[in-house]
Deep mutational scan, measured.
Amino acid sequence: MGFKLLSKLLVYLTASIMAIASPLAFSVDSSGEYPTVSEIPVGEVRLYQIADGVWSHIATQSFDGAVYPSNGLIVRDGDELLLIDTAWGAKNTAALLAEIEKQIGLPVTRAVSTHFHDDRVGGVDVLRAAGVATYASPSTRRLAEVEGNEIPTHSLEGLSSSGDAVRFGPVELFYPGAAHSTDNLIVYVPSASVLYGGCAIYELSRTSAGNVADADLAEWPTSIERIQQHYPEAQFVIPGHGLPGGLDLLKHTTNVVKAHTNRSVVE
């Protein structure tokens, strides 16, 4: 069995187990497998329904001669939608809004960016022009300005110390501490036991640490421990890039980060 097929099978099995364990909360999309990078042309966006009122959005972007996937989250909030992270750029984010209108038909009224990198804030200006209120932590807003990236308009308070959590509509926002970046936030959907790890969490097929220019490698494993301790009931975990899975993604990420750190020390 090929690795790609095995990865998709694991996603399907995880979703099936969740649907059985929580039949009222989960209505997993039966329309197909989780979209992969090879299936999404740059400039297009796919939506994948995880649970009743919960979707991931998947886009792709060219970077350094390669094409990478990027995940975000959409959560229903009454007759409105909360968006977590842009679709990595203005063109993708405009396509995301169009796809949401086509498939869901509810307005996106608020959006949260989970850290300051372009795959999370690139497209904020498109959201703002569409009347979406954009939010991020003060740290993310400051770092985005320093980096020359787009800056969300509103500040999220109460997320300055490791372990801080605040309720934001249908989700809980959690600051686990520094990891992929010093400002990275985690998003949890309690009604569906869905954990969105953003770039602080890796997919299972990833074996290298990737972009760690703004990471705190020493603190990252401790931050992941905080996530595990705060959300032990999480059933569906979405990484910032690639295929979702279960809580095993947290341990896998820790292993990859520690291996990278150990290699760096040896070198």
Rank of each mutant, 00 (worst) to 15 (best):
R120C: 03
G245E: 05
I50Q: 06
E233N: 13
D119N: 02
N92F: 01
K4I: 15
M1D: 02
L204V: 12
I104Y: 04
R142H: 12
A234Y: 03
T134D: 08
L13W: 07
L97F: 04
E33L: 11
S161M: 14
L47T: 05
A144F: 02
E101P: 15
D214M: 07
S16K: 09
P138E: 14
L204K: 12
D64Y: 06
A178G: 11
G65S: 09
V112P: 02
T86G: 03
A129K: 14
G197Q: 01
E39L: 09
L185C: 02
Q229A: 12
L97R: 03
S191E: 13
V67A: 05
Y48G: 08
I20Q: 15
L217V: 14
A192S: 11
G210F: 03
I58G: 03
Y48F: 09
F168K: 03
G32V: 06
N255C: 06
A215Q: 12
L13F: 13
P35V: 11
L6A: 09
S161E: 12
N149H: 15
L156Y: 02
L143Q: 07
P244E: 04
Q103M: 11
E44G: 10
A178V: 11
G123Q: 02
V132F: 02
T14K: 13
S70C: 04
C199R: 01
E99W: 13
G198W: 03
G240N: 03
L97S: 04
T140C: 03
P69H: 07
D29N: 13
T86E: 01
G158N: 14
V67C: 09
V11G: 07
A15Y: 15
H230Y: 07
P138R: 12
R141Q: 04
V112F: 04
K251C: 15
G148A: 11
I186S: 11
L10H: 13
D64L: 06
V11C: 06
Q228R: 10
I151E: 06
S193E: 11
S137I: 12
P176S: 12
L250S: 01
V132I: 05
A94Y: 13
L81F: 03
A136G: 10
P170C: 03
E80R: 13
Y196Q: 03
L250T: 13
K258L: 10
G131S: 12
I224W: 01
G177W: 02
G32P: 15
I100Q: 03
A59D: 10
S191W: 05
A111H: 13
I40E: 08
E99C: 13
G148L: 09
Y188G: 03
F116K: 04
T261D: 06
D29P: 10
V257L: 15
H260C: 12
G242P: 02
I50A: 08
S161V: 15
Q235C: 15
H252L: 03
N92S: 14
N184K: 02
D52G: 09
A179M: 15
D79P: 09
P152I: 11
L24N: 09
F26C: 09
I201L: 14
M18Q: 09
V45D: 03
L159R: 02
A87N: 03
L24T: 10
S62T: 08
C199V: 00
H115K: 00
H154Q: 08
Q228K: 06
D248I: 07
W55G: 00
F63Q: 09
W220T: 01
L83Q: 09
A19V: 07
P170I: 15
G198H: 02
I17K: 05
I50M: 11
H154D: 10
S27D: 08
R226D: 03
G245P: 01
G32S: 13
E203W: 01
L9R: 09
V108T: 15
Q61T: 09
T36H: 14
A259C: 07
Y202P: 02
A87G: 12
G78N: 14
S223Y: 02
L81Q: 01
R120A: 15
G43S: 10
D77G: 07
D216A: 10
L195N: 00
D118L: 11
I17L: 04
G197S: 03
A98Q: 12
L73Q: 01
G240Y: 00
D118P: 08
V237W: 02
P221K: 05
L185Y: 02
S16H: 15
F168L: 11
E219V: 09
V256L: 13
C199I: 00
T109A: 12
G198R: 02
V126W: 08
Y135V: 01
Y188I: 10
V28G: 10
A218G: 10
C199Q: 00
L249V: 10
V265Q: 06
I224N: 12
S181I: 00
V112Q: 02
A21V: 08
Y12R: 11
L247E: 14
S137K: 06
S223L: 03
D183F: 01
N255G: 14
R128C: 04
G245S: 09
G163E: 13
G148T: 07
P69F: 10
T253L: 00
D214R: 12
W220I: 00
T93G: 00
M18H: 06
F26N: 15
Q228S: 12
L249F: 02
L97A: 03
A59G: 06
L83H: 00
P190W: 08
D77Y: 05
L6K: 05
L247C: 15
